[in-house]
Design a binder for these strands. Structure first.
Lengths: 333, 333
DNA sequence: CTGTTAGCGCGTTCAC
DNA sequence: GTGAACGCGCTAACAG
């Protein structure tokens, strides 16, 4: 295992010079730098992360904390983060936190505190107060994507506006009997993403003078969306339009409608949120939130924080856009 | 930032004793251990990964190398790995390698060699000889899931058998005009997963005395599967059954069939491989390979290697199973 | 521009 | 069962 002194010997310089030549910190003459680089290359020297980090306090790694790995939104954002960080030579350390309280504590109180990372990115993580404090206590830059917590630098789409946009689209087509599939009023936090989307829905309806509507809670999976839609569409006065708070649920709703023999959009209009690649195949109209781009933006934000930039105060705003693929239309009756 | 000597002082012992008490290595009296543990807890002490790793040579992290993050199979396997590793207190360091040669070299020659990880898991990674040697040179346990390289301990389903199973299922239903969607004969390595599945298909047909069949290369996405199926099904003597080497492609094939006005399975039978959750919604018959379980198995394999067990020689075999959901049936004519 | 030196924070001998 | 002291491999400060 070749170390810095092997390189120093091979290049005929001191270890300090090797360190300077390789890290680029500190002045080294071009000639010696070349000697060092070639010696290092020849010997296949790579600095030890542990030793370097012990000496500098930096790790060249960013922690990414996610609640799920195997859902489209999360893995897509993660891919975006990874792209941007790899380009800059950072490693990603992945922390997947489940709902299990003991395991969550272990991640926040132990794993994340091992000084293994220079910064943290969270993806749509709903933190309790303790966890939020624990994160801040790390003393490293933190960027939260779509996390509702006010103590953190947050990068998020305006989910209230997303909800309003989707709803306005349906109202604009002439729908008056609408329903929403998404947040659970009981379990979801008031400032959570699902709740904001639902509130956007409700606010728009209120402004349109519509007070009758249904909200079915669902778990953001195809399966959950399908079951929720089945309940809504089985009624006598079934809604003519559904707004699902995610594309996966919207796709479930389309599938449920089909099973009930309903045509989309002739019998029922359906709109989602996300920009899931699968949406194309279902002709799903949606509010795209450019998940991959969110990851890249977050990565760039932590990188610039690591470069010494001041964190943008408050929340950065991420783009979203209505994509009409045909699953919505004017109601028939 | 509380260090080991803070704990030592608070507990009235030396740092050596704190280290022993917390790591469990070395004998400590119950009384002093309790004092140390309580002091550590009170102060919120967590060992520094860098310092500990520099002193011990161990990092309590496992590197996971993937070619894609945002595809179902990979994120699902990753979730399984994460589950199993978190339970044992290991962190995951994620390395996503694209096809870009320079970037790949950086990952293999720099990132992975920073001594940041105690072991490596690769997921369906096709390594060239140099990369494989580079991995072995790390001197840490390596477990490859579905990687074709013979130099590594590999955990894989018998993809030849998977191909045969799917094909036998179609043959058993009476199909004689079959086509395969999957490996590209030109670009895919002979021992790659896609190629093995295709060979299983071809071998089965040969045994059944069938020499006429089509193979359409596709890129394992819904889109690619759809286009490949469209080409196959547009022909006059179109096949009565399609075997797609992944569920995503099989779903694409189902969608393409629908667009051509063909009924599945009445007009064309379709079978996939994977056990993708979406398959349920399309009534897709498939060979499930239990992706999440593969991740767990791989994690357990590296953990036992880290515990000192000898790596199982050769290849571990992962389970697979035919799941009939109705997208295959006897041919009509 | 380069070398010397003193840690970074911890684990582990080796005495006691 | 416990403590003192050294070293893991590297970087930063200081001299020169």
């Amino acid at each position: 295992m070749v170390g810095i002194d092997d390189v120093a010997r091979a290049a005929g310089v001191s270890t300090a010079t090797v360190s300077r030549a390789l890290s680029g910190r500190g002045a080294v003459s071009t000639a010696t730098r070349d000697r060092v680089l070639s010696a290092a290359g020849r010997l296949g020297y790579v600095v030890s992360a542990a030793a370097s980090s012990l000496a500098t306090g930096r790790t060249r790694a960013v922690g990414v904390v996610v609640p799920f790995l195997d859902r489209w939104f999360f893995s897509t954002v993660l891919a975006g983060i990874s792209d941007a960080l790899v380009r800059r030579g950072y490693d990603i350390t992945l922390y997947s936190v489940s709902a299990d309280a003991a395991e969550r504590r272990r991640v926040f109180d132990d794993h994340l505190r091992r000084r293994r990372i220079d910064a943290v990115i969270t993806i749509a993580l709903e933190l309790d107060a303790e966890e939020s404090v624990s994160l801040r206590g790390l003393g490293v830059p933190i960027v939260a994507i779509a996390g509702p917590h006010p103590l953190l630098t947050t990068l998020t789409v305006d989910d209230l506006a997303v909800g309003r946009l989707a709803t306005a689209h349906l109202l604009g087509l002439g729908h008056r009997r609408l329903a929403h599939i998404g947040a659970d009023a009981v379990t979801d936090a008031a400032s959570s993403v699902p709740t904001l989307r639902r509130r956007g829905f409700e606010d728009s309806l209120a402004e349109a003078g519509i007070t009758q509507y249904d909200v079915e809670p669902a778990d953001f999976t195809i399966d959950g969306g399908s079951r929720a839609a089945a309940r809504l569409l089985a009624r006598d006065d079934r809604p003519t339009a559904l707004f699902a708070a995610s594309d996966e649920m919207a796709i479930g709703a389309i599938l449920a409608a089909r099973e009930l023999g309903l045509r989309v959009p002739d019998d029922v209009s359906i709109i989602g949120v996300d920009g899931h690649e699968l949406g194309r195949w279902f002709g799903l109209t949606t509010v795209d939130q450019f998940a991959r781009g969110q990851g890249e933006r977050a990565a760039e934000a932590v990188l610039s924080a690591l470069d010494g930039a001041q964190p943008a105060p408050g929340r950065g705003t991420l783009p979203f856009e209505l994509v009409d693929r045909g699953s919505t239309a004017a109601p028939h009756d």
